[in-house]
Design a binder for these strands. Structure first.
Length: 577
RNA sequence: GCGCCCGUAGCUCAGAGGAGAGAGCAACGGACUUCGAAUCCGUAGGUCGGGGGUUCGAAUCCCUCCGGGCGCGCCA
């Protein structure tokens, strides 16, 4: 049996292999591969067996003078070919097949092959963007495949916190991206409305109600301390009167749960987040699946009894200690239903299962994955991809605010949205790598609203509308879909086109790494490219009419690209601000 | 003590084994009689936490140490 190491839990390259020809660097890679092959067959370069050939890398150089794309492929070929890398590069270039993409090639440094895109091809891409509209930059990476993204999954014990917000935005944006690159996406919310937690919730409301009735009752420390519990108690008192005091905890639990769940859904709605499927942990008890799972694990020898409890042999998979699956009271721990739920996910035929979790769950996922692996789902380590995000540290007035559902002193996601707006919450929550801890300074976020990248990006979009709609109408200029885009030769124009085309790359990268934060950086860079174009190239006041019409098409394309990016981020694309 | 994550410009953070190390903010200096200045241009700012190793090539991979976070329960 193999040990499932946390570090190996990353996106399986085979699951998410890029198949589309839209990605320019892949087309260039094929062209270079062909050139290398031709050169070897012609005897211009020594023959190297395919399995000994290093992977051909094509990348975007950091410095513009190194071209649009570059490949260091000649460098690692030096050893097997026993030739100088620069000489190898020269010969590869000499054998490049005819193609419409590459305009010029330069050799530089120790043997880099620097390529520049054909300007005629580049300008034509503007037409393509206009044709594709809202589907612009989509890929076919996940075609015919199903992915489940499970996120938020907060139990209905209290309002969503800022910490939940990060998971919510991360999961939803990831789902948007996976959808754009071709996966069939199911957004799922997993929750538990039974068990000790909920008993405590119901009783917390009951005690608060008794207090409201003037009874002198001590409120336990481990009960839910939040103000919202008192609100719910007060509402119940208003509706049912003092007789409610006679009801048991279950009565209060039912009401509290409904109120809280409605509140959670409302918060998610404000962030434009909707789940397709809600799965209740109770299902796995009712259908008896958890006991089937336990039985199957026992048959396979991964479960044993000790001290009246049932244990999972986690140590066989490298864990430091075994884990209890069923308490001596006969009540399962959360691990058993979690395992059953993941069996359920696997059985539902998802090719990829993404669990968006807080970093406090880091220790439990290996148990779940090892258990389903033990049950015979040997591809589980590849199919199940947990994403752990570090918690958001909230800072107010230079002081950290400790967030806990049970304490009164926490800031809800709703309050954060009230302060900075839904678009800003969405943008900031995924503007850093999930692995990185995040400091969210409330005062700064509200103070700096003018310097906010959210406004910068949305402003660029609003500007496109300003030109195409308001200003064009004022000047009586109409949009011409047949305008000649080959006139778009200004450096700022081609930079803008190249930047728009990069969206597909960014999406592919985000999907492959399951890391949506790159999209926020891209959004800013795209907006910046548009603003630079705007500075350099007058659109409606350009020197001749053909150029006016061509630039209008470019602006329209930019509008599409900006709107697409904003929508993928779950943000609005306003036409005026 | 053990496991995972993080350590990169003053601050917040990107960085996909490949070329002088990147952005935003803050700082400093410029650009509006001109399609929206919520914009643009320029300057300065770095032993990529330290030390070893692998590699033609390391911020990136491995080892080790230091510092911070999160876990390590018959809680979820």
């Amino acid at each position: 049996m193999e040990f499932v190491d946390n570090r190996t839990i990353k996106t399986n390259v085979d699951t998410v292999r890029v198949k589309t020809m839209r990605l320019i660097h892949l087309q260039l890679r094929d062209i270079l591969a062909e050139a290398l092959q031709t050169a070897m067959e012609a005897g211009a370069l020594p023959y190297v067996a395919p399995e000994a050939l290093p992977e051909i890398i094509v990348e975007r150089p950091k410095r513009p003078e190194h071209g649009d794309f570059a490949s260091p492929m000649a460098l690692p070929l030096a050893r097997p070919m026993r030739r100088a890398p620069r000489q190898i590069a020269e010969i590869i270039v000499a054998h490049l097949p005819a193609n419409e993409l590459i305009a010029t090639v330069e050799l530089a440094g120790p043997g880099y092959i620097n390529m520049r895109l054909n300007p005629a091809w580049l300008t034509q891409q503007v037409n393509r963007i206009l044709e594709e509209g809202e589907t612009f930059a989509n890929l076919d990476m996940g075609v015919g495949k199903n992915v489940q993204v499970e996120f938020v999954s907060a139990n209905p014990t209290g309002p969503l916190t800022v910490g939940h917000g990060r998971g919510a935005v991360l999961g939803d944006t990831l789902a948007n991206i996976l959808q754009a690159v071709g996966w069939n996406v199911t957004r799922e919310y997993y929750y538990n409305d039974a068990g000790r937690q909920m008993r405590v919730l119901g009783d917390s409301v009951r005690l608060r109600l008794l207090q409201l009735l003037g009874q002198d009752i001590e409120f336990p420390d481990d009960y839910y301390q939040g103000e919202y519990i008192i609100d719910i108690a007060r509402d119940i008192l208003d509706e049912y009167g003092p007789e409610a005091a006679e009801k048991d905890w279950q009565f209060f639990k039912e009401i509290a749960q409904d109120v809280i769940f409605a509140d959670i859904r409302n918060t998610l709605e404000r962030l434009n987040i909707h789940h397709d499927v809600y799965t209740n942990e109770a299902t796995f008890y009712e259908t008896g699946v958890i006991w089937d799972v336990l039985e199957r694990l026992r048959e396979k020898g991964y479960v044993y009894d000790k001290d009246g409890a049932v244990w999972f042999k986690a140590t066989e998979f490298g864990a430091d200690k075994d884990r209890v699956l069923v308490r001596s009271t006969g009540e399962p721990t959360y691990r058993l239903p979690d395992i059953a739920y993941h069996v359920n996910k696997l059985e539902r035929g998802f090719d990829l299962i993404v669990d968006v979790l807080g970093s406090d769950h880091i220790a439990e996922m290996p148990d779940v994955i090892n258990a389903v692996y033990a049950l015979g789902y040997t591809d589980a380590p590849q199919r199940i991809q947990p994403i752990f995000h570090q918690f958001v540290t909230l800072v107010r007035g230079g002081q950290a605010v400790k967030m806990s559902t049970r304490r009164a002193n926490f800031v809800t996601l709703d309050e954060l949205i009230d302060e900075v707006g839904a678009d800003a919450v969405r943008y900031f929550m995924i503007s850093r790598s999930p692995n990185a801890q995040m400091e969210f300074d409330l005062e700064l976020a509200t103070q700096q609203s003018d310097e906010n990248p959210v406004y910068y990006i949305q402003y660029a979009h609003a500007r496109t509308a300003g030109i195409l709609e308001r200003q064009a109408a004022e000047r009586g200029i109409t949009f011409d879909p047949d305008a000649d885009v080959s006139l778009l030769t200004h450096p700022s124009e081609s930079t803008l086109i190249r930047e728009m085309l990069r969206l597909s790359d960014v999406l592919a990268h985000c999907a492959a790494e399951l890391a949506p934060h790159h999209l926020t950086f891209y959004a800013r860079e795209l907006a910046s490219a548009f603003n630079q174009f705007y500075r350099d190239c007058p659109v409606l006041t350009a020197e001749d009419e053909a150029l006016v019409k061509a630039r209008m098409k470019l602006v329209k394309a930019a509008q599409i690209a900006l709107a697409r990016t904003l929508h993928l981020l779950g943000m609005t694309a306003p036409k005026e601000m």
